[in-house]
Design a protein around this nucleic acid. Structure first.
Length: 472
RNA sequence: GGAGAGAUGGCGGAGUGGACGAACGCGCCGGAUUGCUAAUCCGGUGUACCCGGUUACGGGUACCGAGGGUUCGAAUCCCUCUCUCUCCGCCA
């Protein structure tokens, strides 16, 4: 398990996540069903993130979540509309029941009596139409409000407005120091002829790069090393679609809200993924899994595409913030159990720490504060790795726990022992993202003569090469 | 890019206006039978929401790709959209 300082993180203590009451229904066991989301009539709707009953029963907790996450959501209005909606539905159901009954009676009447009876029911039909419209109007008003409701942050999440208030939990290794003037990764990459940003910019625009020679191989090496590490941990390796439908983007909660951040194809309604989390988490969308299929542990490798809109002038140098990169991502879909979910959260964090420790890179773990958390996360731990060129820790990993937020949107359920379908829990974490990880790798492993030592664990993936030397 | 076919329950597959939440088969669950397994027989078996009851539960509504329309009444008729598949062409 973990490295020297695995202890001392946030404990396994947690506040039981409030769950709404739910009606029991007997069901078939073990069936792997595929159920379509339908738009109305009381069935599930994509885009709703929290169970309305949870909001109903825990309004104060939701208000508190909004306050802590700095997200506006009109809880009072939601409660009011929810109340209205239920009254309208009850009225509609009753009238409809009456209509169904009378329509059936008409069917049994002799043909010549039908017209008169039908005329009678026609008035009822019009009344029902109005009730139906009222229900729809309320639903239409309610939906966008529900979309605003954030997931409830764990009690472990520190209060704070932005990333400056994230809390360091622990650190591993010592930030590298040099007895010579160190170069940053751009200088190193250029002199080693393994990186070309200048020409990339000319042909591909800002925030792009070419990895060349050992640079290309080094990236493949670190990715494959990370992948192998996760396979050894029992995760199934997956190569995933990079173009996905809107459902997958919405289901994983990148949409709505992230439209500016994602690339979209012009001729088709497809999105380029910003992470393999999207296809991996969506993999069993609209299915009911058997409990014996859980936890589902997958590790994906993909290119990741990000527009980085609104970051102009920020992190412009080098490989830190770029439009395209490769990432090995671990995703877990597990049973709806807070404690189990939390345990996996610590495990996926540990998995990535092991990778960084094997690479010999100093890092720290931060507990991301409430204001820096996204709408869907219950809690997030970032790994920040020491980058000499920045003279600071820089984010390289992000481990998130979602409770059933994504599963609810993706409609991924499982049958527990009681045979009732339940939404799963989902989690994910970076295993390694490159070329960002090349920044600390190159910068920390540089030598006075400008060469860079290949970390031992990567050498098998580099044909045994131990050193990357400046070209003559 | 051209041509065509289709979308029904866990799966296969019926169903062209009322008795259809949906035949039949398979699967699954419970029971019977059986030395064990297999086979056979009987029964059960979708999801969501609302209402009622502390619970096993009961009542109602919705859902046959999605949205809209016609009708007293729609899986069935009409319109729009989406998706899937097959063949041909092109292509890594």
């Amino acid at each position: 398990m973990g490295g020297p300082q695995r202890r001392g993180g946030p404990g396994l203590s947690h506040r039981p996540y409030p769950l709404p009451s739910r009606r029991a229904r007997s069901g078939r066991p073990r069936a792997v069903s595929r159920t379509r989301a339908t738009a109305r009539g009381g069935s599930r709707e994509r885009g709703i993130m929290l169970d309305i009953r949870l909001i109903r029963d825990n309004a104060d907790a939701v208000r508190d979540a909004c306050r802590r996450k700095r997200i506006d959501a009109d809880v009072d209005k939601i409660l009011e509309l929810d109340q209205t909606l239920r009254e309208q539905k009850t009225a509609f159901d009753a009238k409809r029941g009456e209509q169904n009954k009378r329509s059936k009676e008409i069917g049994k009447l002799p043909p010549e009596e039908r017209a008169a009876a039908a005329a009678d029911v026609k008035a009822l039909a019009e009344e029902i139409k109005e009730l139906d419209n009222a229900v729809k109007d309320t639903e239409t008003a309610l939906r966008p409000l529900l979309m605003q409701v954030p997931n409830l942050p764990s009690d472990d999440v520190p209060d704070g407005a932005d990333d400056s208030e994230n809390v360091e939990l622990r650190a591993w290794g010592t930030p590298k120091t040099f007895d010579f003037e160190p170069k940053d990764h751009v200088e190193l990459g250029t002199s080693l002829d393994i990186l070309d940003i200048e020409r990339a910019t000319r042909i591909a625009g800002s925030r792009t790069y070419f990895l060349k020679n050992e640079g290309a191989l080094l990236e493949l090496a670190v990715l494959r090393f990370a992948l192998d590490h996760m396979i050894a941990k029992g995760f199934s390796p997956m190569l995933v679609p990079h173009l996905v439908r809107t459902e997958a983007m919405e289901g994983t909660a990148y949409l709505p809200g992230g439209e500016e951040q994602a690339y979209r194809t012009v001729k088709d309604e497809s999105w380029l993924i910003g992470t393999a989390e999207v296809p991996l988490t969506s993999y069993r969308m609209d299915e009911i899994l058997g409990e014996d299929e859980l936890p589902m542990k997958t590790v994906g490798l993909s290119q990741c595409y990000r527009r980085e809109a609104g970051t102009y002038g920020k992190d412009t140098r080098g490989l830190y913030r770029i439009h395209q990169f490769q990432k090995v991502e671990q995703v877990i879909v597990c049973r709806a159990d807070d404690e189990e979910s939390l345990r996996w959260h610590h495990e996926i964090l540990a998995n990535s720490e092991q990778v960084m420790q094997a690479l010999g890179l100093a890092y720290r773990i931060v507990n991301v504060c409430s204001g820096d958390l996204g709408r869907p996360q219950v809690q997030k731990f970032d790994i920040e790795t020491w980058m000499p060129g920045r003279d600071a820790y820089g984010e390289t990993h992000s481990a998130s726990r979602f409770h059933d937020f994504q599963a609810r949107r993706l409609n991924i359920r499982y049958r527990g022992e009681d045979k009732k379908p339940r939404f799963c829990h989902t989690l994910n974490n970076t295993v390694v993202a490159s070329p960002r990880v090349l920044i600390p790798l190159l910068e920390c492993y540089q030598q006075k003569d400008g060469s860079v030592v290949v970390p031992e664990v990567l050498r098998p993936y580099m044909g045994g090469q131990e050193l990357i030397e400046p070209k003559a």
